[in-house]
Design a protein around this nucleic acid. Structure first.
Length: 642
RNA sequence: GGCGGUGUAGCUCAGCUGGUCAGAGCAAGCGGCUCAUAUCCGCUGUGUCCGGGGUUCAAAUCCCUGCACCGCCA
């Protein structure tokens, strides 16, 4: 029997949930709801990645065991899932015994294939990355390219996986299964990477303690990705006697297995993971679907314009369904999209309030006013039947291809058809002329209401709560629909219809932004650490004018331990800048040195001395000791830094 | 530097293997209805389909080249 299995990545508990997590999870939820609605046996897995040095450290910093830290974050995810009505069948945590058992089983198979060997692994190790770097990847002072913190030369015996051996088989697999990576352009990227040759992968760590002990290698734990990726099968019971789900949803000729991921972790899913599986002789996933990122609209910073990004506020104000709808409708799946409150409000009003909400409201009102309930007969011969057939076919094709925006457009065409039909038939006139008993009136409203009901069925994967409300409005049970509901003529006859509040009351965008602005401004205190995406757009960065400068004069600011008064050459312009570096640098170390400065900073007075800019320095260690950024002596002063 | 992608109406984007492909939605303008959440229905426009070459009877669609932006790798 054909089965469908979909997963999100397991989320690292070092990070609180943000829009990226919400998006991937909602996508997977929509897809699995669609499959269930189509009657396919379906399984939806998500979970958390809880091992690694970073977790160990973060927990130690808070004085709690790592597992307690993980518990807290896991609770945040559960909350999130309740809010958005995520219907996952399982939630795996890498600290669970079933996961460990599965990882051990996977490792046993790879070992049996002879794909592990031990060798000395040396290099510059960054403990934050839990990774080794080569000399040329580091700056001259051997600092980590990601964290800019000191790395240490480490040398240890590690277990290696013969990844190099699988470059050929992987390329062959890509060739034979072009659907293995979606979208297509990503497959090209991955293939290009593999064609460049693969190095064997170190898959054990002795520096890390918080992890799964590597079988047969005391003191070593399993490398985080080998541990984490395995979740997709360990959650199904792989390696356990109770592996019914594994046999049904993974190791089965007709099982479809899809990983939804962000494009940032494509390589792990499309290279490492299938290589592990090939080695272990297990089936590969059918498709790895890499979606894009939500970028922030940063055209204007003015809050009154309405580009304040506050997903929490939007969800609170307009509800999780509106947010789910926006995410699925606005992003062309696979590409990046930009997020703005403005776009959200536009979609909300145009699509949800006007089209969906108003159509439900008008058809329901017509029925209620005419019959006090649903029509007494089912009309099977009308223009809406055909519109539904077309919409359903398009919707199904688009959903199967993960073209969510298209699927939604198809449903909206059905809504437009209903509205056009209502306008053409003018049921309010029929009622006046022929009375509420008119058979024609019953048929017209039956067709209209049935169109709305079917739109709600097709929308149920996207906006489950709203769909149930629509069913309720038309006298049905407020339950998730099943495959048989997706056929014409299932609207109950002469059923009482409760009068419910508007689904999506029209929003006054101007008033909303005014309120948000007021709230933002009144929140003078530091914003709470919201689990938000804090990436910025390139335009944000470009507002900062960074320039190189040569220090001409340096002297300590009287009565200050930290402040140093500098006069710098900014390429023809002489500037006075005060920098808090006197504790670490002597004036004579500074004169003649090249530095990087922020050239367009508003002037400020420090200890009575005016400063016109800021010298950039890395902030090192707990105390944040400044370490000036180096600029080679031959870079002329005033050069742009970008 | 290598590989790949993108560039289509004011905005967001559809346009597969070349021949109603010059489109949809939003925004704008005009008209209509009044059942409905000032909602709905109909009509209307602007586009050097990034620039330049080429193949072809025919190219937004294929090839070459230039520019801009983006991604992966180094």
């Amino acid at each position: 029997m054909k089965t469908f299995y979909a997963t999100t990545p397991i989320y690292y508990v070092n990070d609180l949930p943000h829009i990226g997590h919400i998006y991937t999870t909602v996508v997977t939820d929509v897809v699995t709801r669609f499959r269930r609605l189509s009657g396919e046996p379906t399984r939806f897995l998500t979970g958390t990645d809880e091992h690694g040095q970073n977790i160990e450290k973060a927990a130690a910093a808070q004085g709690i065991p790592p597992l307690a830290l993980a518990d807290r974050v896991v609770e945040r995810y559960h909350q999130l899932y309740r809010t958005f009505e995520i219907r996952n069948d399982d939630f795996i945590r890498t600290t669970e015994a079933r996961h460990r058992r599965g990882v051990e089983a996977l490792i046993a198979r790879i070992a049996a294939a002879g794909d592990f060997y031990t060798a000395k692994h040396e290099g510059w190790y960054c403990s934050s990355c839990e990774a080794f770097y080569t000399e040329k990847e580091l700056d001259p002072e051997k600092r980590c390219p990601v964290h800019a913190t000191a790395t240490a030369w480490e040398s240890e015996e590690n277990v290696f996986f013969r990844l190099s051996k699988y470059a050929g088989p992987l390329l062959e697999h890509y060739e034979r299964h072009p659907e293995f990576v979606r979208p297509e352009s990503r497959l090209a990227e991955v293939a290009s990477f593999v064609r460049g040759g693969l190095n064997d992968l170190s898959v054990s760590r002795s520096k890390v303690r918080w992890g799964i002990p590597f079988p047969g290698h005391p003191g070593h734990v399993v490398y985080v990705w080998l541990d984490a990726l395995a979740n997709y099968i360990t959650a199904l019971g792989f390696g356990s006697p109770e592996d019914r789900f594994y046999r049904e949803f993974w190791d089965h000729p007709e099982a479809e297995r899809v990983h939804f991921i962000g494009k940032d972790i494509l390589r792990f899913h499309a290279v490492y993971w299938p290589a592990f599986l090939l080695s272990a002789g297990l089936p590969l996933p059918t498709t790895v679907w890499a979606h894009g990122w939500w970028l922030r609209d940063a055209k204007k910073v003015s809050k009154s314009v309405g580009n304040v990004v506050r997903p929490d506020a939007l969800v609170a104000e307009f509800g999780p369904d509106a947010f789910r709808y926006f995410l699925m409708r606005e992003m062309a799946f696979g590409q990046d999209a930009s997020f703005s409150d403005e776009a959200f409000l536009t979609r909300y009003n145009a699509d949800l309030a006007n089209d969906l909400g108003n159509t439900v409201s008008r058809v329901a009102a017509l029925c209620r006013q005419s019959f006090g309930g649903t029509p007494r007969e089912v009309c099977t011969d009308n223009e809406i039947v055909g519109a539904f057939g077309d919409a359903e076919a398009e919707w199904r094709a688009a959903m199967t291809a993960c073209q969510f925006a298209r699927a939604l457009e198809a449903v909206w065409r059905l809504l437009t058809a209903v509205n056009g039909y209502v306008v053409a038939k003018e049921p309010w006139k029929i009622r006046k002329q022929e009375g509420a008993d008119s058979a024609r009136l019953h048929r017209v409203l039956s067709a209209s209401a049935e169109g709305v009901r079917l739109a709600a069925v097709m929308l149920s994967p996207f906006v489950p709560f709203t769909s149930r409300r629509i069913f309720e409005t038309f006298g049905m049970m407020a339950a998730d629909p099943t495959a048989s509901d997706l056929a014409w003529g299932r609207l109950p006859v002469s059923a009482p219809m409760p009068e419910l509040p508007a689904l999506f009351p029209r929003a006054d965008a101007a008033a909303y932004f005014q309120k948000e602005t007021a709230m933002t401004e009144s929140a003078a205190s530091p914003a709470p650490a919201a689990p938000e995406d804090d990436r910025i757009a390139i335009e944000d960065f470009q507002r900062v004018r960074l320039r190189t400068a040569k220090v001409l004069v340096a002297e300590r600011v009287p009565k200050s331990n930290k402040l140093m008064r500098l006069e710098v050459d900014l390429g023809g312009e002489r500037r006075q800048i005060v920098a808090g570096i006197a504790a670490q640098y002597a004036p004579e170390q500074l004169v003649g040195r090249n530095v990087v400065v922020v050239a367009n900073l508003k002037p400020a007075k420090l200890m009575g001395v005016e400063s016109n800019g800021m010298v950039l320095a890395a902030s090192v260690g707990e105390a944040g000791a400044p370490v000036l950024l180096d600029v080679p002596a031959d870079v002329p002063p005033g050069s742009k830094v970008k």
